[in-house]
Design a protein around this nucleic acid. Structure first.
Length: 646
DNA sequence: AAAAAAC
């Protein structure tokens, strides 16, 4: 049999009865997309009955987990004979035999057992989550959950969640997963480092597992992914792929990544070995679509990571082509999920083209991000930037661990500037590398790895590295050149202070950045940062950054634009419903940082011992308090690993 | 104006 679209698949195929895997899409019950309205009733979507959620699968005693003898991960242990993939790439039923040979994404052989897997464990402050402000809007918003177990994601996925050492869902996960599991479209705005990748991957993987039996067309050539995840950069696509592979280990769900700068034929071969979830950058995906190597007609899940970037001027035409001008099912047939830390109004308006009766979700103040990032702004003329950077790096080296240079990510405006600064740093005894779009893909990957491992602890980057990349232990982000958009600033500084660790962000400001004065001052103030008087003076000049910036009004990039029209009046009504603005709950309930950079008081983010950040010492040297930078232990944090929290 | 993203 050959199905030509998701809607053609019969109900019984979509939702196996009695299996408890019922795929529930309550919001879709009556929706028939325009292009299908003339079809026969049998092809119309009928919502299957809600699935049982009472299987007890994941719950309490962890049936199966920890039982080492149970053989879930046993290579060759019991998933049936490897009779060769049935029917080739498109045989979902062939999913089982894939697992025998699936390489373990969690590390070395033998570490697949969640009980013994000793991964690097980045912890996150779950206590702080109690106060996180959440805003949702839309029709019939499914309530949040407090545990992963409350959603029946499936046993294999639950095991992977354990292998990842995710104990509790982060706020964005608590809210987004039930929304997505209910089949709803979603626009989600959650801070950098808050666990967005898992928030969209879990429901996608779970949804595909529930429909393992769906048959896809037997094309002469071309593959039919069930889910597409788009990313604005190649490295981020890679990272999402790595994460998604962990989440889908032993589930029978196959994840493949496709991006440019690398031989296309190899990727095509990989695709032809089977793909359920395709992670891609837009250019390469369009290439594959034009070549007829990929068809989108079976796509049920579409996720745009860094969605506001994907829909900005540079990317919008490519995204429209993929989403609207190829064979992708329309909104309401596919499920669409957009995630970012920032969501400017005009982009929201654009994005609503891609969504159907969607829910808007804004999650503020997640365990790291802005609150654990100390932001500094210094007035530095262009001609002084290099020597000033040198001062920072020297101070850091002197105060760092065993004289080692802490990982420092330096953002510049241009590719040329990146090369030039990198060269200058190297000449001056600071091991640096660079990542930008003029370098070959191999060079980019080498640079990133070299930075991550600390071999070259300084990475000079353009905005290619601004979004989504999860690089553990970045102690310091330097905005050597400020971006022109406050949202870009938010994403850049979000490369530090991730998953509960603290971080420092230093920006060099001068007369070329006057349009940033106001939004920057506001952002810093809202994040309880010390705003220098000179910056406040710049900000107060009407001509400086007053009009241009969309964030003026003092809100974090996330209020549902559909509500703007009737909730004006609030005087730029704040997104979190209070005077606090960015991360501010009315009444300042967050245990805001007291003036300066002292320790965060208890009750806020837990303790940051070590004296926090010493006041900025003019004489050089004292950027970091005693106790050292990057040595801030995470006390009182629940276990929970993240390697990619965006 | 720059950056990113296909060959």
């Amino acid at each position: 049999m050959s199905s030509n679209s998701w809607a053609d698949v019969s109900e019984s195929e979509r939702a196996p009865s009695g299996g408890g895997w019922g795929y529930s899409r309550p919001s879709r019950t009556n929706y028939v997309p325009p292009h299908l309205r003339s079809r026969t009733p049998s092809s119309e979507f009928v919502a299957p009955s809600p699935g049982n959620n009472d299987r007890g699968g994941y719950g309490g005693a962890n049936s199966g987990y920890g039982g080492r003898g149970q053989g879930y991960g046993g290579r060759g242990s019991g998933y049936g004979g490897r009779g060769g993939p049935v029917g080739g790439w498109n045989a979902r039923s062939g999913g089982w035999d894939r697992r025998d040979t699936e390489t373990n994404p969690f590390g070395n052989d033998g570490n697949a057992d969640p009980a013994v897997n000793e991964q690097e464990n980045t912890v996150i402050n779950f206590e702080a989550y109690e106060d996180i402000p959440i805003e949702t809007s839309g029709d019939n918003v499914p309530p949040p959950v407090n545990t992963f177990a409350e959603i029946d994601l499936g046993e294999a996925l639950n095991l992977n969640i354990q292998r990842c050492k995710y104990v509790k869902p982060t706020p964005v996960q608590r809210n987004a997963i039930p929304i997505l599991a209910a089949g709803r479209d979603l626009m989600a705005c959650a801070q950098t480092g808050s666990g967005k990748t898992a928030a969209f991957c879990f429901p996608i993987i779970s949804g595909i597992m529930k429909d393992q039996h769906i048959e896809r067309p037997h094309g002469v050539r071309g593959v039919y992914p069930l889910a597409v995840i788009l990313s604005p950069t190649r490295e981020l696509a890679c990272q999402i792929h790595d994460e998604a592979r962990k989440f889908s280990y032993q589930t029978g769900v196959k994840v493949v990544v496709a991006y440019g700068g690398t031989p296309v034929n190899q990727q095509i071969r990989e695709l032809e070995r089977g793909v359920d979830i395709l992670v891609a950058t837009p250019g390469r995906l369009n290439d594959l679509l034009e070549r007829g190597r990929v068809s989108l007609q079976m796509v049920r899940f579409l996720a745009l990571d860094e969605a506001d970037r994907m829909l900005d001027m540079g990317f919008e035409p490519q995204i429209r082509k993929i989403v609207q001008q190829m064979d992708m099912p329309p909104p309401g047939v596919r499920q669409t999920m957009l995630f970012s830390a920032t969501f400017p109004r005009e982009i929201q308006r654009l994005a609503s083209d891609f969504l159907s009766n969607y829910i808007f979700l804004a999650v503020g103040r997640v365990g790291s991000s802005t609150d654990l990032i100390v932001q500094r702004v210094e007035f530095v003329h262009d001609s002084d930037k290099r020597s000033h950077l040198m001062d920072l790096l020297h101070a850091q080296r002197e105060n760092g661990n065993q004289g080692k240079q802490a990982l420092t990510l330096v953002f510049v405006e241009t590719k040329k500037g990146a090369d030039s600064l990198e060269n200058w740093l190297c000449i001056n005894g600071f091991p640096a590398t660079t990542i930008h779009g003029d370098r070959s893909q191999q060079e980019r990957e080498v640079a990133l790895r070299s930075f991550k491992t600390g071999r070259t602890p300084i990475l000079v980057a353009t905005d290619v590295a601004a979004r989504g990349l999860d690089i553990p232990h970045v102690a310091h982000v330097v905005n050597f050149d400020l971006p022109n958009d406050i949202d870009d600033y938010v994403h850049r500084i979000g490369r530090t202070g991730r998953a509960g660790n603290s971080g420092l962000a230093t920006a060099f400001f001068n007369d070329n950045n006057t349009t940033m004065a106001k939004p920057l001052a506001e952002l810093m103030q809202e994040a309880n940062q010390e705003v220098p008087d000179w910056l406040t003076r710049y900000a107060s000049r009407a001509s400086f950054g007053g009009g241009k910036n969309r964030r003026s009004g003092g809100r974090f990039g996330g209020r549902d634009f559909r509500r703007e029209s009737f909730s004006r009046g609030g005087g730029g009504a704040d997104y979190y419903g209070g005077g606090g603005g960015y991360g501010g709950v009315p009444g300042g309930g967050y245990g805001a940082m007291p003036g300066g950079y002292g320790p965060v008081p208890g009750g806020g983010y837990g303790n940051v011992p070590g004296g926090g950040y010493a006041p900025y010492g003019r004489g050089g040297g004292a950027y970091y308090g005693p106790g050292g930078y990057g040595t801030v232990p995470n006390q009182g944090y629940g276990p929970g690993v993240a390697s990619a929290w965006d």
